[in-house]
């Protein structure tokens, strides 16, 4: 049972980012490897508001959402849009370069020392033998709400419908009169906010430092691949799978190899079911 609780908490951290990554992939058909850097940026934004400015963490979380959304939308405009029409490989490479730049921008201003949020000390809740920290409870709740709202937004609202239409067939969306560019920007803002949220959540659980960016990139992408890269909800389920695999690794192998779990899951998915858990085969232009 304890494993379930811990796995849920781990999954809750990366799930929003995995949903955001999938959204980006669906809209533009390229894998944005800078996800980890956006998450790390979110963590630093939250930390700055929480520790430097001394405000409560929820305010830091809001700042993280805003910074995440802004950075992603900006990088989309300045870096990725001008490269539209280039191969997926090119965009992939650029996203890695961007990630490297962002990581070092943070290193430049904040240094490499490990940082942590300023959180009031609270005892864990005990349900029988089960130990649930209040932080974990908050992380799971917030993450769950974020994912459900994203799902609701995509399925129930006009903008969500438009986002799915653009993801489905960009040129038809254009011909049918949809403002494709603006809709894509909205999608990027949503994805960016989700990255920022993951950044805040990851900071509650782990130490914050610029190297965080690579540490989370692989599990996030692994979760998205597990979910089939075609459905945001699948990505959330993928995050659950990664969370469980990570907790089992921590329990039965070595905690140090938690970081290799994402990679192992990808390997297993590729060996068993290349199209992912839910998705159909990924085809890219």
């Amino acid at each position: 049972m304890q494993v379930v609780v811990n796995a849920l908490a781990s999954a809750a951290i990366i799930a929003p980012a995995a949903v955001g990554f999938t959204l980006t992939f669906m809209l533009f058909r390229y894998a944005n490897f800078a996800v980890g850097a956006f998450v790390m940026l979110g963590a630093f934004a939250a930390w700055t508001v929480n520790v430097t400015a001394g405000l409560p963490l929820w305010a830091g979380g809001i700042a993280a959402l805003a910074i995440g959304a802004m950075t992603v939308a900006l990088s989309d405009r300045l870096v990725f849009r001008p490269l539209q029409g280039r191969t997926g490989a090119t965009l992939l490479l650029v996203s890695v370069a961007l990630s490297f730049v962002l990581e070092n921008v943070i290193r430049f201003f904040y240094g490499s020392q490990i940082k942590g949020f300023d959180l009031p000390l609270t005892g864990p809740l005990m349900i029988g033998d089960l130990r649930i920290t209040r932080e974990a409870l908050a992380v799971v709740t917030i993450s769950g709400i974020a994912i459900l709202s994203t799902a609701a937004l995509l399925t129930l609202t006009p903008i969500g419908r438009a986002l799915r239409a653009v993801a489905d067939n960009t040129s038809l969306a254009d011909v049918r009169g949809l403002p494709v560019g603006s809709i894509q920007t909205v999608g990027m803002i949503i994805a960016g906010a989700l990255f920022g949220l993951s950044g805040t959540l990851v900071g509650i659980d782990l130490a914050i430092d610029p190297g965080l960016s690579w540490a989370v990139t692989i599990p996030i992408i692994a979760a998205a691949i597990f979910g089939g890269l075609g459905s945001p909800l699948g990505a959330a389920l993928g995050a659950l799978a990664i969370g469980f695999a990570e907790e089992l690794t921590v329990m039965f192998l070595a905690p140090a190899y938690k970081g290799a779990v994402g990679f192992m899951v990808i390997v297993v998915v590729l060996l068993l079911r290349p199209q992912g858990l839910l998705g159909v085969a990924v085809d890219r232009k």
Partner: peptide, 10 residues
């Protein structure tokens, strides 16, 4: 358009 003229997933 001649083909791909509906949003298939909607």
């Amino acid at each position: 358009p001649q083909d791909r003229n509906v949003f298939r997933t909607l």
